[in-house]
């Protein structure tokens, strides 16, 4: 076979180029630890996510000192949870699956990008350094509302971040003179203990309680207010723990009728 010298030269150069490309990619994998989305996770039944430990409650979980896991469900045409909130200087592993068709989960302006295929779970570990807000798009066509499918990932500062769940419950009505008691359940889903203040505001009254909640613990607190000091009428109340609030309304009345006023279901 008759190959011109220049062509041989180019053949060698082309091979160098190809080997160089493969070497660069390998360098990224081995030296920089860039990992592909793969088959690490077991499959899942897309129609039974509610029964799956990983996806029954789309959430962020703390699993180590600076390590978090985010369980994300993509579906036409939204992501859950949204926004996804994680702290700065953390390693976050995303587990993403789909409830219906093929989607993607792609953090705009980053290299965090994966297909989301029903039945499969995409796993990606990402290091977040500084606080930032990222948009999330679905970049695979998933139906007529595809362009409306978006989400957000918020990387917040250590001070702002918590995994606290707050729930407060109070009576709908009390008779003047009786006590109003508001039960507050505060769950600290982080691993470390938090010190914080629970505040109840009702009418002109403000009640506070300084608490320490151990990691993974739930604290039950009850605030008690004398309805007489509030007087007759509707009173809005708000319970606040850090950035979390829960609220309700209580009606204080002189004569409570047995059958009336129960507009709660």
């Amino acid at each position: 076979m008759n190959i011109h010298a220049y062509e041989k030269l180019w053949l060698v150069a082309a091979m160098l180029l190809i080997v160089g490309f493969i070497a660069t990619i390998t360098y990224g994998s081995v030296a920089l630890g860039i990992t592909m989305v793969g088959d690490q996770q077991d499959t899942v039944e897309p129609t039974e996510l509610a029964d799956d430990d990983r996806f029954d409650d789309p959430r962020v979980e703390q699993v180590g000192e600076n390590e978090y896991e985010a369980y994300v469900v993509a579906q036409t045409f939204s992501f859950q949870p949204n926004p996804i909130e994680v702290p700065e200087d953390s390693d976050v592993t995303f587990y993403v699956t789909s409830r219906d068709v093929i989607h993607s989960f792609s953090l705009v302006g980053t290299n965090v990008n994966t297909m989301v295929i029903p039945g499969e779970v995409a796993e990606m570990t990402v290091e977040f350094d500084d606080p930032a807000e990222y948009g999330v798009v679905c970049n695979e066509y998933c139906g007529p509302g595809h362009h409306d499918m978006e989400g957000e990932v918020h990387v917040v500062s250590e001070d702002e971040f918590d995994l606290t769940e707050l729930e407060a419950d109070g009576p709908d009505e009390v008779e003047t003179g009786d006590e109003i008691s508001v039960d507050v359940t505060t769950e600290n889903r982080q691993l470390e203990a938090i010190e914080t203040t629970i505040t109840l505001e009702i009418g002109d009254e403000t009640l506070t309680e300084d608490v320490t909640i151990e990691g993974g613990e739930t604290l039950e607190t009850t605030f008690t207010v004398d309805s007489a000091t509030l007087g007759e009428g509707d009173h809005d109340w708000t319970v606040t723990v850090d950035d979390h609030t829960d609220s309700g309304t209580v009606t204080v009345a002189d004569d409570l009728e047995d059958d009336g006023g129960d507009d709660d279901e």
């Binding site: 592909m36 390693d91 990606m124």
Partner: peptide, 9 residues
């Protein structure tokens, strides 16, 4: 950020 394996990080 880029997707990395937990161990290498």
């Amino acid at each position: 950020p880029t997707v990395v394996s937990g161990i290498v990080s």
